[in-house]
Design a protein around this nucleic acid. Structure first.
Lengths: 270, 270
DNA sequence: ATCAAAATTCCGTTATATGGAATTATTACG
DNA sequence: CGTAATAATTCCATATAACGGAATTTTGAT
């Protein structure tokens, strides 16, 4: 609501362009449309996009003069070792899970009031989930992995997140706060989440928290699969395997990487 | 050498900050060091980094006040790396190759005078290659996948790339232009590359081009493994399998995605 | 071939990015 | 535990480069 104080710096405006371009996907966007979307004049956008392009953050598609995000972006991000190298560290676990379970596997990392999908390995059954693609962001509480993280947060922090997220969850078709709280109790007690929190019919999932050495749930492993594949016979084994990987992963996470934690400053602000 | 014309725009300078921050990795960098590295004053860098942070491109690590790239950066980059959805499209092929061959598999995509490693699946033998990590960039001509792409470019474009890349290849311990040209002939004739172009001893690799519907080599699949695993008995089978995947993949690539091609404008500039 | 719309360049004006100096916070050391 | 040293952050007058309107070129449609 109040994200746009008054005037953003020129840099902020430029970054907004990147966001707009990201929406354009791989087909790219016409200059005109970028200008319209950003509210700036065409000349301004043109210059900015040129700069972005010479720096490799944006590329111009040969034909239609369209612009889209460039590969350099990807290159930088890969090298940056995101979220404390979590992605790299978790890759082997994801591959093992994928090979063992034959389902689609997700690695989610917590970011403030959301989880972000850091990595995903496709299983044989095509899955459409909230978590969606790599880079996808969902509020804490929506989806099994996300729910698993939220449930294992320390109480004060969990409360803060719930207060903040309930409205957002409503928007996305979630039920109500009471249901959420009940679900969280269950999840915390059992250590995993498999509730169908407003999911696609016929689909099911299982999420387990990844807890670091300080006891903080910083991430989650989850799978998405056909509901019939998480019946009473198979479920316990799947839980065991996923908890095993989550535990190993959590133990390897550097507890001194504060980037994976929640800046207490923000908490106070609530 | 002539990358810094005279004065970069303020936006360019800000983007340079992102590059510098990427170097800092997940531990982050101190403001002072960012300032030093960028050549700008601390105040300037401070303001820029604050802006970057409010936009989520940079995050400030709670303890030591250090800065590093933020998750939002990663989120955008995930979309940027798509290059026409190539990464997603190729994922199943990589998984199949990895499972079938039990070697480390790479997906490389061409970007101007380089290839960029878009994805990689680790095999049981640890591989150190140029191509290296996801996001790694090597000049066209260095490494088997890269060589396979270069060899299959149309002649004029190939010549332009060779002219541009020979000096760069020299820097990286490559032999000479004649050797390169001979290698390219061989690779083009046979449709795959397995030459040890200045590699680590004991290691070997195999690269095949991914050719789209218009006949353009836009990417490559390659594997890295122990030299003994690419002997005369195994090699033919591996080639067949990899060429099969490359062919399927190439057929699925949208030939109307001009982003995977080479902007002719740049060619003329040579 | 002709026209309309978009892309790109130009330029005078104005907003804002800049670095030095001042202030506050953090770290290192005795 | 206190003190010095170093870094982070804020402030401010000035220079700079970002801005959008208008002119020009290119592209795309019919």
């Amino acid at each position: 609501m109040s994200d746009e104080p008054q005037s953003a710096s020129s840099l902020r405006r430029a970054l907004t362009l990147l966001r707009i371009l990201a929406e354009g996907g791989s087909e790219g966007m016409r200059l005109k449309d970028i200008a319209t979307a950003s509210g700036a004049s065409q000349s301004t956008v043109h210059r900015a996009v040129q700069d972005l392009a010479t720096e490799g953050f944006v590329e111009q598609i040969a034909s239609g003069k369209r612009y889209r995000l460039g590969l350099d972006f990807f290159v930088l991000a890969a090298r940056a070792g995101q979220a404390g190298g979590l992605r790299e560290q978790a890759r082997p676990a994801l591959l093992r899970l994928s090979a063992t379970l034959n389902d689609t596997v997700f690695l989610l990392v917590r970011d403030r009031f959301d989880v972000v999908c850091l990595d995903r390995i496709e299983g044989p059954f095509p899955i459409r989930s909230f978590t969606g693609d790599i880079g996808g962001r969902v509020p804490l509480g929506l989806g099994q992995g996300s729910l698993a993280v939220l449930a294992h947060l320390p109480e004060d922090e969990r409360e803060a997140v719930i207060r903040f997220n309930v409205p957002r969850l409503m928007d996305r078709g979630f039920l109500d706060e009471a249901t959420l709280r009940a679900a969280l109790e269950t999840v915390r007690a059992q250590g995993w989440a498999n509730l169908n929190t407003g999911l696609i019919p016929g689909m099911a999932g299982l999420g387990v928290p990844v807890i670091d050495a300080t006891g903080m749930p910083v991430a989650a492993l989850s799978i998405g699969t056909l509901a019939e594949r998480l019946g009473p016979e198979r479920l316990p084994g799947v839980i065991r395997i996923m908890q095993g990987e989550a535990k190993q992963l959590g133990a390897r996470i550097n507890p001194f990487d504060p980037g994976l934690r929640y800046p207490s400053r923000l908490l106070a602000g609530g």
